[in-house]
Amino acid sequence: MSPPGARLRLASESTRRPVVANSVLGMLLFVGSETMLFAGMISAFTIVRTSAVMWPPPGQPRLPVAATAVNTVALLASGLFLYAAQRAFLRDHRSAARPLGIALLLGSFFVLFQGAEWVALVRQGLTLASSTLGSFFYLIVGMHALHAVAALGLLGHTWLRLRQGWLVQSQLAAAQVFWYFVVGVWPILFLVVYR
């Protein structure tokens, strides 16, 4: 009877394989760097906001908090459906298509709703150059929207691969990491920018 340590060493030497797929590790590193990007923008926004005499700046519209809160719920729900898709994928590949499709639809709804909100705000006079609120709002929320669109593209590709029967676990996991980042960072941005 060999000791457990020796057995482990022998076993791990004979079956060496990566603990995380390269695509997932790459996505984790990307998400890590993007976290710093958003932290930098939040930090700059906090300094500008706390040093402002009046907030929002005079003549600028108030941001639509209630409507965006509803939109936030849609985005959080898409994250839950993606989690359900992953659980379903482990049981039976084909059963993951529906929750993944719903997550995709909810994410698309979020981006379209944000676009409609932007159009309304521009009409009310909030532009990139109108004030520091406008500059930071479009920069921070726009950067998030850019990430959401890119992640939706990846989710859409993942859904297509699943429908065609070509989806591998690592691609779903990488798409999950990206989408969870988009979902996870949004409530923070909402609380910082919209309050």
């Binding site: 939040i42 700059a44 906090t46 300094i47």
Partner: peptide, 10 residues
Amino acid sequence: LGFLLGTLIM
């Protein structure tokens, strides 16, 4: 306060 909060975040 803004600088302090920024530092605390970063």
